[in-house]
Structures are given as structure tokens and as C-alpha cells.
Write a protein that binds this DNA or RNA. Structure first.
Lengths: 223, 223
DNA sequence: CTCACATTGTGAAAGTTTTCACAATTCATT
DNA sequence: AATGAATTGTGAAAACTTTCACAATGTGAG
């Protein structure tokens, strides 16, 4: 029980967690550029939100800034990293080594340190039993065993819509607790598994709509 | 002035438009499968929402279903298509022919009919002046001329974060009115340009967070 | 040291989205 | 024709999110 524990109890909204992850990315850049401190309105500018929102978000992780000087970049980054991530490297599985899957694999390098796609699965034999971008590719038949062996808790689904539910079921049974789903189909899973859907087609259609009609406003919500 | 006009005036939220696009996709399948009618709770199941939500969403396009029989699939699909899309094919430009860009190109085929990536741009000479998945690839220097020539109003940005703002500015000046932005950086553009951000890293981090802590719930928001 | 100023932290207000709940309506059956 | 079961359409309530606004608090100049 040496892990530092937060008050918890209060549950933090998905929206807020998403923005905290953005703040972390921005702070990583600021620290790299040797910035000492940062104001809420500067963070707001960088992420497209409002200063009040930034402060409210940072409240939930108990960050403190000093009036007139703002937040200490290094300290804030450390708090965010500790809050958002588990200690150690977070291992991620990818299912579906198509075009999208390969794009994700090539991203995996640039990702936040501590977040890595360590296993990829596909049903096509010509895509398996090799290493792509440093990630080992397996046949889908071995999904359960590899996931359990490596104790993987997070997965990305990048398979065609028809196959998504089946894959999701297998992942859940194998012990996966969180899924990023690129298939344009809702996954029905026990509530113990967290699912984040990314539906590119839907996003495109939204943009087409608002580009045609008078625009709404450049709202920022990401993903 | 032969185009049918909706009451308009009431402005419809981004969330709602996104869901309407989902309903359209689902209805396309239902019609293909020769389903005659569909109930709100069936649509809800298929898209991961609630029946009440479906009904409220369909209200805004003035759809009518009959009690005890639900909505006529064909009629509802027609209403949705008319509401969501402009007449004619919507041409889309893609900037950035990396892994992600190519994945999007290969999707473009399967997209809703009437939505097509017709031009792709990159800065690397070895990626330009060819045809990939039926889409012509140009050097980024020709961005303005091609976009204007083809009267393209919607674009997808799939370039590294550092280049995104520059590309966005050029797109906006060339006449683009809506952008899907995959770069993990907020775009600052006049409000006449609609921007939808898709931040894969952020989504992954959200999932990592909620997979570790007790899960929230499998909420459906997509994109 | 004191003052003026910029900024944080946060209660309360405003705004937005979702859910509830129920009258109205239609269909199938008797 | 009348009854009952299922479903829509929607006003109102609830839940959630964002913004406002301001007291508290450091900071730096004079």
C-alpha cells in the first residue's frame, strides 16, 4: 500500500479525463522547451478551451498554482502523469492489422512513454508471425493466450464492423478492461469493460453537415 | 429555390447530428435486409443509446413513425439522407499521405455513397503524382489550385502536429468550410470553418485511465 | 513597506443534454 | 365494434457541464 492515493470517491467525468490527457501532452512540450511556469489561460489557448475550464480541471487532481505566477510546469506534469497512468509500462494489444492497424502501430512509437502496443492480431496468415514497427504480430487464434500471458488490459479494435463484437467478447473474457473501438458498431460488453468509440465516418458526416449549413463554431472536444 | 427547406432556425447540436449519421448507417443496413419498419428501441440497441434519445433525435428532422408499428425504414432513411447531405457527391480532400492517410483512402470506398476523397496531398515527392485507391495524389504546393478547381469544401488533416495549423490556414483560404483534424493540436480558424478533432492518443489515454480505475460505463459517444 | 495588479480557486449561475413519464394513437384480436 | 398491448411524440424533471464572477493570495514596482 505504498501507492499514493487520491481522495477518490469523487468520480471524474470522461470529458475531464480527456482534457487532462491533453494538458499532459502540452506540458510535455513546455517542459521540453524549458518553460518554468504556465498560466491557465496559456494552457487554454494551447488546447482550445477556456481558462476557467483549465483551472476547474486541474482542481480535480489537486494541482496548485500560485497567484500571479501560474502553475509550475514540471510539477504539474508530474502530477498529471501520476494521476493518469499506472506505474510501469502500459501494454496495449491491437486487433486488426489492416491499413488502420498499421497506421496505429507506426504511431505507437511517438506515443506517451509508458504506452506501447506490444501485440497485434489478425486473421490473415500473411500478416502474422512477423514484426511490424517493433510489434509482434500473432494469429488471432492465439489472442487469449497472448493477452493472458502478457497480462494486457487495454486493446484497440481495428477490424471490420461485422467482426468487432466477436473480437470484443474474446478480449473481455481474456481479461481486457478497456477498448478503443474503431469499428462503426456499438460493442455490447459488461460495464466492467470501458469502451471508447472512434467513428471516423460519423465524424466526416458531421463535418460535411456543418460545412454545408452555416457553421456551428469551432468547438473543441477531440475524439 | 426548388430545394426543400426545413424550418431551420432551431439549430441542432453536434451530438444530435452525429447520432443522426449513425441512424442513417443503421437504416442503410436495415433497408438492404428488406426490413419494413423499425422501432425506436431497436435503433437504440443498434447504436448504443436509449429509445427516448432516438425518438428525440428523430423529432428534429420531423420524422414520423406510427404507434405500434414504428418508423418505415425506407422513408426514414430517405429523410435522414436528405437532411444530412447536400445533393450531389460531396468531394473531400486529404492532406497527409502517411500510414493514416492511406488507411483513410482505403476506407473512402466503403463510405456512404456520395462522399468521396477525390484529392490527396503530401509534401514528399515519392508520394505524389500517382493514384492510390482511385484517388489522385498531388504535391502540397498545388493544394490551393486543386481545391479551388474542384470546388472542394471538406478536408481531412492527417499530417504531423507541427504542420497542422499551416495546412489548416491554407485550406481555409482555399475555400474549405469543414475539417476533420487528426493532428493532436487545436486548430485556430475563423468560426466559419467547422473543425472536428479526432485525437487517437487522447482516446487511448482515456481508456487506459478508466481500464485501471473502476470503470465508468460503456457510454456511447463515438468520434 | 505598501500598493496595484495579475492570477488562482471555487461557489453559484447558466446552459446543455439526457432521461422520465405519460397522454395520444394505432394495430391485432376477439 | 370494443378491448388491450405496444409504441410514438413531447413537456417537464433530472443530470451533467461550462461559464461567471469574485474573494483570497502572492508578486513586483516604487
Amino acid at each position: 500500500m505504498s501507492a499514493p492515493s487520491y481522495p477518490e470517491a469523487i468520480l471524474i467525468s470522461e470529458r475531464t479525463i480527456g482534457r487532462l490527457a491533453q494538458y499532459r501532452r502540452i506540458l510535455t512540450e513546455l517542459v521540453r522547451d524549458n518553460l518554468e511556469t504556465v498560466h491557465s489561460h496559456q494552457l487554454a489557448l494551447r488546447c482550445g478551451g477556456s481558462a476557467a475550464q483549465v483551472r476547474r480541471d486541474l482542481m480535480v487532481i489537486g494541482a496548485e498554482g500560485s497567484p500571479n505566477k501560474g502553475y509550475k510546469c514540471a510539477k504539474l506534469l508530474a502530477s498529471l502523469a501520476e494521476f493518469l497512468t499506472q506505474p510501469g509500462t502500459q501494454k496495449v494489444a491491437l486487433v486488426g492489422i489492416g491499413n488502420l492497424g498499421r497506421a496505429l502501430l507506426s504511431y505507437s512509437h511517438k506515443q506517451q512513454p509508458g504506452l506501447l502496443i506490444v501485440a497485434a492480431f489478425d486473421i490473415a496468415p500473411d500478416k502474422t508471425n512477423k514484426v511490424i514497427d517493433g510489434c509482434r504480430c500473432f494469429h488471432i487464434d492465439t489472442l487469449e493466450s497472448v493477452i493472458k500471458e502478457q497480462n494486457i488490459k487495454v486493446a484497440i479494435i481495428a477490424v471490420p464492423g461485422e467482426a468487432a463484437q466477436l473480437v470484443a467478447d474474446r478480449l473481455a473474457i481474456a481479461g481486457v478492461r478497456g477498448i478503443v473501438n474503431f469499428a462503426p458498431a456499438p460493442l455490447h460488453l459488461p460495464p466492467s469493460v470501458f469502451v471508447e468509440n472512434i467513428d471516423v465516418t460519423m465524424s466526416l458526416e458531421k463535418v460535411v453537415y456543418f460545412a454545408a449549413k452555416g457553421t456551428q463554431s469551432e468547438r473543441n472536444k477531440s475524439a
